[in-house]
Simulated assay, not measured.
Amino acid sequence: MPRPASTNVRGNKYPMVTPDGRAMFSVRAPQAKEVVVDICNKKYKMTRGFMGEWTVTTDPLVVGFHYYFLNIDGVAVADPMSDSFYGCGVMTSGIEIPESASDAAYYTYDKSIPHGQVRECHYWSEKEQSMRRCFVYTPAEYETKKNAKYPVLYLQHGMGEDERGWHQQGKMAEILDNSIAAGKSVPMIVVMDYGNCGYIFGKLRGETRDQFGASFGPVLIDEVIPYIESHFRVKTGKDNRAMAGLSWGGKQTFDITLANLDKFSYIGAFSGALFISPNADFNTLYGGVFADADKFNKQCKYLFMGIGTEEGDGAKNAVNLLRSHGINAVYYESQGTAHEWLTWRRCLNEFIPHLFKK
């Protein structure tokens, strides 16, 4: 039997998900002439029924979280019966096509284990002359072990998303809670800040690829890290800091950490937009940090690159290239997934057990 999607606004029957992964949509728009659902790179024309109720059932969709839009007479809008999420540079709708309970266990709320907190924090940016916002995860024991200090993972969203993404779409709190409770990961603090890339590249006329989101680096180094270290009980120093990001956030992670190896020891890119050419000059790539492999391997305790199998071989080729130059790099594939949140949830789950281990 079809069941209401977990991403619905509470109390709404639709959208629904069938046992074989189809999504069923219903929208009341009595004045509309055409209504279309745009999901997973495919458009489904809806059929008008009684009292202007428009309905459609999609083809089977791949498991995981998917953004979608309603297009009513040519205007793209969010579905009022779905929760809204910031993605694709706008507030839009999202639907979760569930995996099996066993496959989804690592990002599912477990009532039998202790749970951390996610706090919304505001701080003043002198660089931007404005208030900024970050979300900070603290592990369950943070409230009871009052003298304990914790290492920090700085975790970035991708292009067209913002600091809410990892907490809402990415289910990072459940992933951290479950991994820590299982003894796989050490208790840590996770900071999710806005990467200054919440719009789609090309929106700002004249902005180059290298400029897109680049202003976040100085903010992170000079303002975010000092704010976290003055407001939370954290361990300081490079061996107690990690950074990872998805898609464009992966590019930002490489750009920032490889220029600041005195501040970070753990690096992760999930479907990272890295643009490492097979003909790259390792004497100049990322300022030459890979030129001396032995030195880099001592500075960086863990370098991780993950990607979905449906995204191509870019990450695999980059890892093989790095390895051919003596760089210790770990490669992970998420089976059957593309450039999507299920890939990044899996990458995070694979990445965090390797952090901050003695």
Rank of each mutant, 00 (worst) to 15 (best):
D313I: 06
F264R: 02
F270K: 01
N317M: 13
K295P: 01
S271G: 14
A293D: 07
G288N: 08
W248C: 10
I228T: 08
Y227D: 03
V224R: 03
G272T: 06
I221L: 15
Y302C: 08
E311Q: 14
A244M: 11
Y266N: 03
S277L: 00
T284W: 04
W248G: 08
Q252L: 15
V224S: 02
L258N: 05
L246C: 12
T309L: 08
F212S: 01
Y227P: 05
F254S: 06
A244N: 12
G314W: 10
F212V: 02
F270Q: 01
Y227T: 03
N240E: 05
E311D: 13
G268K: 04
V219A: 06
K316E: 15
F212K: 01
T284P: 02
F270T: 01
G288M: 04
G314L: 13
L261P: 06
N240K: 07
E223N: 07
K298S: 14
G288A: 08
N240Y: 12
D239I: 14
K263Y: 03
R233F: 10
I228R: 02
S215N: 08
Y227Q: 03
N317I: 06
L274R: 01
F282D: 01
I256Q: 11
A214L: 09
G249T: 14
A273D: 14
A214H: 07
K298T: 12
A259D: 11
N297P: 02
F290W: 12
H231S: 12
L246I: 13
L285Q: 09
V224Q: 04
D281P: 02
F212D: 02
V219H: 05
A244F: 03
G312T: 10
R233M: 09
Y266T: 04
D294W: 10
Y266Q: 05
P278A: 00
D255E: 15
Y227K: 05
I256R: 05
N279H: 03
N297R: 03
A291H: 10
K295Q: 13
Y302A: 04
K251N: 15
V289L: 09
S271L: 05
Y227L: 02
L246R: 09
W248N: 14
F296Y: 15
F254I: 07
I276F: 00
M243L: 14
H231G: 06
A291T: 02
N260C: 05
D262T: 06
I307H: 13
S265N: 07
P218Q: 03
K301E: 11
D294Y: 09
L261A: 06
K316I: 09
S215D: 13
G268F: 08
F296L: 15
N297M: 04
A273P: 00
L246P: 09
R241T: 03
P278L: 00
L220N: 05
G250S: 08
V219G: 01
F232R: 01
A315I: 15
F290M: 09
L285A: 08
N260G: 07
F216P: 00
I307Q: 14
A259S: 12
S271Q: 03
G237K: 12
D292S: 12
I225R: 06
H231A: 07
R233V: 10
G237T: 10
M243A: 14
I221G: 01
A244V: 07
G288C: 11
L246A: 12
N260D: 07
Y266R: 04
L303H: 04
F282Q: 00
I276Q: 00
I228H: 04
L274Y: 02
A280W: 00
G217F: 07
A280F: 01
